[in-house]
Computed example of a mutant assay.
Amino acid sequence: MLLWINGPFGGGKTQTAHEIQRRLPGSVICDPEHAGFGLRRMLPPDLRGDFQDLASWRQGVVEVLDLTLSKHDGDVIVPMTVTDPDYFAQMIGRLRELGHDVRHFALLADRETVLRRLRERGLGHLMQYVGGKDAPLRSESWAVQQLDHCLERLREPEFAEHLWTDHSTVPKTADRIAVLAGLTLTPNTGGALRTRLRQAKVGLKHIRFD
Rank of each mutant, 00 (worst) to 15 (best):
L108M: 12
Q52I: 01
L24S: 13
L69D: 09
E156S: 10
W142E: 10
Q145D: 00
Y87V: 08
D134F: 02
Q21R: 15
L65Y: 13
R94N: 08
L47A: 10
S141A: 07
H167M: 02
D210Q: 07
L47C: 09
F105D: 02
Y129W: 07
R40W: 03
H125F: 00
L180M: 13
V114N: 01
L3T: 11
R23Q: 14
E97Y: 04
M80A: 12
E19V: 11
E158V: 04
S141P: 02
D46N: 10
L118G: 03
K71D: 08
A178M: 11
K201C: 00
V179H: 13
D73T: 10
V130W: 02
A160W: 06
H162P: 12
F9M: 07
S27R: 07
R116K: 15
L193S: 02
W164Y: 11
I77K: 12
D50K: 14
T14I: 06
I5E: 04
F9L: 04
A106M: 07
L95I: 02
D46C: 00
R94H: 10
K13H: 05
R153P: 01
K205N: 06
L204Y: 01
D110P: 01
P25V: 06
L204I: 06
D31Y: 15
A160P: 05
L197D: 00
E156T: 01
A106W: 06
G190A: 05
P79A: 05
D66L: 12
P45Q: 06
W164G: 00
T189K: 14
K71E: 10
L95E: 03
R103K: 14
R103H: 15
L107W: 04
F88A: 06
G7Q: 08
V62K: 12
L147F: 01
V76R: 12
G131N: 05
D210S: 06
V64G: 02
V202C: 00
T189H: 11
V61I: 11
P8S: 03
P157A: 02
R23G: 03
T16C: 12
A55K: 14
K133W: 07
G191H: 11
P157K: 11
A135S: 10
A178G: 03
G36D: 07
D75A: 14
Q52C: 04
F159T: 09
W164H: 11
R208E: 09
T189Y: 07
L147I: 06
K13I: 01
P8M: 04
G93P: 11
H206D: 00
K71T: 14
A89C: 08
L183W: 13
H100G: 06
R198E: 00
L126A: 10
L65I: 15
F9T: 03
T173R: 05
K201W: 08
V144T: 05
V62W: 13
L65V: 13
Q146T: 04
R58D: 04
L3Q: 07
L65P: 13
Q146L: 09
E140N: 12
